[in-house]
Computed example of a mutant assay.
Amino acid sequence: MYFPHIHGKVILVIFRKEISIIKEYDLAIIGAGPVGLFAAYFARLHGLKTIVLESLSDLGGQPEMLYPFKKILDIPVFKEITASDLTKQLIANLDGQVDLVTSHQVQDVESAGDNLIIDGEYQVRSIMIATGNGAFKPKKFPLKATPEMEDRIHYFFKDPAQFAGQKLGIFGGGDTALDWANELANIADVSLIHRRNEFRGMESSVDALRKKGQVNFLTPYLPKKMTEKDGQLIIDLKEVGGDTVLAESFDQILVAYGFRADNRFVKKWGVELENGLIAVNRSMQTNVPKIYAIGDACGYEGRVPIIGIGFGEAQIAINSIMRDLFPEKSLTIHSTSIN
């Protein structure tokens, strides 16, 4: 049974003779990638008591998990900044005034009067979904592997030095594969294997790799068979549209076939999706009162999946939340306002 009239910072909940404490917040941000962390910072500026809930064990989201060493070129103010440094800066901006909870994948959101209850632990006045593409799992390398082989197959890494002096195979044709190749070619013998001659990643990355001349391009090939010999992976590569088969050996391989991302979990809260993305209005509100969505989790006509745009959406959403929670207040829109 809930006792909504109890005063103070917490509410006692009595259920089956057990007493638990529900913590109260103005805002819960689900997702601690760059956009979620910036939203927490902007919420702090406006005096919102905020908690951030992240399903992964570390903060920073996919950039921190997949390419912490990568130089990001499209963050406002910075000419370039690594994903790791961006994460550190965003966390530092919070000044320890925002509660950060990792390894917590939100399951249940229930209405409780004018508030929302998250997983029976947190009572919040509003929720902001900033989960990017959602909980993600890497698409597995398609060949059968023994446990010993699996130890040599990687889907992400944080320290390039672990591959120094080794012969590496990188499978994939998107930005992640290209970024890995560009970083690791300086310290390892790298082969880049892709099923097409054209790459899906940025053309500038491809040009940079070709100019370096340090990467062995194996295209168009697909992996067909894998064995292990003398501590190395022997992978047969079949030419796409041809009969050529190459037997290549690697100390380790990195697989960048993408991730199976999913934000459909929000449907059980009543939140509507359009083409797999959370539908929002111009105030970043979903169809469910008190629930907002920003960043790559949301979709609307003309949206571009860039971190900087997510930052702007965070500001729009926070301003909307402030107007909803404190309609009597005169809202300072931004620190450069002349009004």
Rank of each mutant, 00 (worst) to 15 (best):
I72Q: 10
V52I: 14
T244K: 01
I75K: 14
I309E: 05
T82Q: 12
I14H: 09
K225W: 03
W180H: 10
I170W: 08
V255Y: 02
L192M: 07
D189K: 08
P223S: 01
S84I: 04
T131Q: 05
T176F: 04
R196Q: 06
A32I: 11
V255K: 03
K88P: 14
D236H: 13
Y257M: 07
V240C: 01
G302K: 15
L12S: 14
L90E: 08
E313K: 15
R323H: 12
S57F: 10
D95F: 09
D189H: 05
G173N: 04
L53Y: 11
I318D: 02
K158T: 15
D108E: 02
V10C: 08
T286F: 11
P34K: 07
P327D: 07
T219E: 09
K290V: 03
A164Y: 12
D296F: 05
K70F: 00
G270V: 05
S283E: 14
M1Y: 07
I117A: 06
K229Q: 15
K268Q: 13
T219Y: 04
K17P: 00
I118Y: 00
D251G: 10
A135K: 02
E150Q: 15
D236Y: 04
V109T: 06
R303A: 07
I6H: 13
V240R: 12
G308R: 13
D114H: 08
A83C: 10
S320H: 02
D108C: 01
I21W: 11
A297D: 10
L325Q: 06
I153S: 09
L86G: 13
F141D: 10
L233V: 06
P327H: 04
L53S: 12
Q232N: 15
V288T: 13
K9Y: 04
H154Y: 08
P305T: 09
I75G: 14
S111A: 09
I30M: 03
K79Q: 12
P138E: 08
I29K: 00
V98P: 04
K9S: 13
R260G: 06
A177S: 12
G312K: 15
I170H: 05
E228R: 00
F38G: 12
Y2D: 06
Y292H: 03
I193R: 02
G36F: 01
L254M: 07
D179N: 08
N186F: 14
E272P: 13
G241L: 00
V101K: 06
A164F: 09
F163M: 12
D119Q: 13
T332R: 15
I11A: 09
N287E: 14
M149I: 03
D99Q: 07
